[in-house]
Design a protein around this nucleic acid. Structure first.
Lengths: 193, 193
DNA sequence: GGATTTGCCTAATGGTGTTAGGTAGATGCA
DNA sequence: TGCATCTACCTAACACCATTAGGCAAATCC
């Protein structure tokens, strides 16, 4: 009986593709086994269990996302950097909806710390360098960007904007404009009552 | 054998409470049956299936959320309204994390249209009246608010802000300040290149 | 080329979702 | 009040997913 050539790597990769096809929540050990034309039990030599598989897919997604973010902000500053970063984020989510969901799979603290999540967060901070914020404003701004981007993308993919005009594609640059203006104005808004 | 007094209403209510306790993704027909000390099959006279149950929980959550939003914006305008609306949103999510997740359960178009989702969106639009935006800016602004609030709350509940100072509780008012300033400035930002 | 490793298998168990059809307690009507 | 009907909950059965234990044969090592 020929061997299928299973590998943790290969399983995780196929799992990520499966997620993009059927949605991360429908990624199942059984379906994966089916795709490799292999019995379910065979997977358990390569991943600990279903949770382990999903965690590994999440780590893959976080890594890819951080890579795109790094590419986007490299050699750019200010509004250019903001736009590139944001577009990279949104682009990843639309091209890989399953992986994007996977990236939100809850990780235990140590795994999260060792993931590419912090790297992605550093990119977000780097992008803000052009706006010359001081702490704690910079941290607040990082969180604002994270909230807007994740919020928009997740509402968009779930169809939240699809039943009204104008197209969500027009709102996106409007939001980026607004954020750019906002970040420029932050130093002054600190002295608000 | 005494009857348990099952009702669609009662099941959905208990399902919502279960969601808050164990997370919406762990709401299961079996667990619900266990709570009512009843066999699983008995539930199928009151809900069509698992998807139906989850949909009904989602509708309940959307309704409660819209109620809170309506209370919040009633009799308020401008920044007050913004803050109250936002706090209502975040408050609901922290008090009822399971229901909050349920409110994001994907609904088919007709169900979504008949849900309290549109009502909630109208509240969001109402709160913007104080800022005197014209279309399409108002729509963009509605979406921005939705993105920020949902993004922040969902990152916060998944623990995204919990591993760095300052506390997420400090970022929230900072963001509301920033949004208020942003919305006031919108009319001018339209003439940007 | 024999020993060992290891990749995939069979078998078994327990949990969830769902349907079909039965029974007993509640309800309606004379 | 007693019978008929209705319906709320049940048993039984099946399919699918996750997981573990233990077996056999292909690959690998000397």
């Amino acid at each position: 009986m020929a061997r299928a050539g299973l590998t943790t790597q290969r399983l995780v990769q196929a799992g990520a593709e499966l997620a993009d096809e059927v949605g991360f929540e429908h990624v199942t050990v059984s379906e994966l086994a089916r795709r490799f034309d292999v019995k379910v039990a065979s997977l358990y030599s390569h991943v600990k269990n279903s949770h382990d598989l999903k965690t590994r897919i999440a780590l893959l997604a976080l890594d890819e996302l951080a890579d795109r973010a790094a590419d986007a902000v490299a050699g750019r500053a200010g509004r250019d950097a903001l736009t590139a970063f944001a577009d990279a984020y949104r682009g990843y989510a639309t091209e890989h909806p399953g992986r994007y969901t996977a990236a939100r799979y809850p990780l235990d603290p140590e795994t999260a710390a060792a993931s590419a999540g912090p790297r992605h967060a550093r990119m977000s901070r780097a992008l803000l360098r052009g706006y010359e914020l001081s702490e704690p404003d910079e941290t607040h701004a990082v969180r604002l960007l994270g909230s807007v981007f994740h919020g928009f993308v997740s509402l968009e993919t779930v169809g939240g904007f699809s039943h009204s005009a104008p197209d969500a594609g027009e709102t996106w640059p409007w939001i980026l404009d607004a954020l750019d203006a906002l970040l420029r104005a932050v130093p002054s808004s600190g002295q608000r009552p």
